[in-house]
């Protein structure tokens, strides 16, 4: 278990309401197990409990029940913090500082050597070249998001925790972000990616966990999630001579063999047999029972 960057067992978080007279269960009995080097997508509609879970993982909220361990250490421990890079949702650092100042101060607080050249390279990597000495107060939301990513990458983290990291970005910047996430994963970092952008999760994640109303409603590799339950597509040529006129039928797994036999019995050539895949959006909507992701 100690090799697992993140292990969440039966996590529950309840917030008191109305002076403690009632309470609200934001997260209920959630289990998450991450493998080293994995990119895990964390999906759910607004209010599903994603950010609450992330805050518990980072030691910002105390779980009401269950346990969390990061490489065998409790959340918020010095050892765990050293190995994490975090990009919060809507980051808002003190806007009187410049990105270079923030990087330099974070480096010092993390016990890293301050290296102006390295920090400039990092800022250039996240697309902030030329903005090193401009105060954050004149930055757009997307630019602040880039500063946040630079701060998260600064220590070469073993685990990147990203909470809606591309929320304020345009499509080109989103692609840059995705590329950086993939680069970091190739370097060996595990990535915990919470996102509303299903296409983003589908593109970069190895596995996904779907949350709804504080509970885990689905989990699996992208292959497992996108594959429909035991449904296959059988494509065959309508004429014996060739595949010019191809017909497709979708059959459940238990009827697959008999369907193939029947088509062959009619002397028609089978072009392909493949499991049927859904889009992640379909998976998400089915799992959460929502009308659509917000």
């Amino acid at each position: 278990m100690e090799d697992s960057p993140l292990s969440v067992r039966k996590l529950g978080k309840t917030f008191p309401r109305r002076l403690g007279l009632s309470s609200f269960r934001a997260v209920d009995s959630v289990d998450i197990q991450m493998s080293s080097g994995e990119i895990l997508g964390f999906l759910g509609p607004n209010g599903a409990g994603k950010t609450t879970t992330i805050k518990c993982v980072l030691g910002l909220l105390r779980p009401s029940s269950g346990s969390i361990s990061l490489w065998g250490e409790p959340p918020g421990s010095r050892g765990a913090r050293r190995r994490i890079g975090f990009v919060p949702e809507n980051p808002d650092y003190e806007d009187i500082f410049t990105p270079l100042e923030l990087l330099s101060m974070f480096a010092s607080m993390r016990g890293l050597d301050q290296d102006d050249r390295k920090e400039r390279v990092l800022l250039s990597r996240v697309g902030l070249s030329g903005w090193e000495r401009t105060r954050l107060r004149s930055f757009s939301k997307g630019m602040r998001q880039r500063v946040s990513l630079a701060l998260a990458l600064q220590s070469g983290p073993d685990l990147l925790v990203l909470d809606e990291p591309t929320g304020g970005l345009d499509p080109a910047a989103r692609k840059e972000f995705r590329d950086i996430i993939l680069e970091e994963n190739r370097r060996g970092a595990s990535v915990f990616l919470s996102s509303h952008l299903l296409s983003e999760v589908e593109t970069v994640c190895h596995r996904a966990v779907i949350l709804a109303k504080g509970r885990k409603v689905s989990e699996g590799t992208m292959e497992e999630l996108l594959r429909t339950e035991d449904t296959y597509s059988v494509r065959y040529a309508a004429a014996e001579e060739g595949p010019e006129d191809v017909t497709e039928v979708r059959v459940p797994g238990d009827l697959l063999q008999s369907t193939i036999d029947e088509i062959r019995g009619r002397g028609l050539p089978i072009v392909s047999v493949a499991p049927v895949y859904r889009s992640l959006e379909e998976v998400f909507l089915t799992a959460t029972g929502e009308e659509g992701p917000e």
Binding site: K55, R78, G85, N90, M109, A152
Partner: peptide
């Protein structure tokens, strides 16, 4: 209010620090 505290406490600093 500005959420500056989240990334600070999440990564480089303990609450005591």
């Amino acid at each position: 209010e500005t959420r500056t505290i989240t990334p600070l406490l999440a990564v480089p600093l303990s609450r005591g620090q």
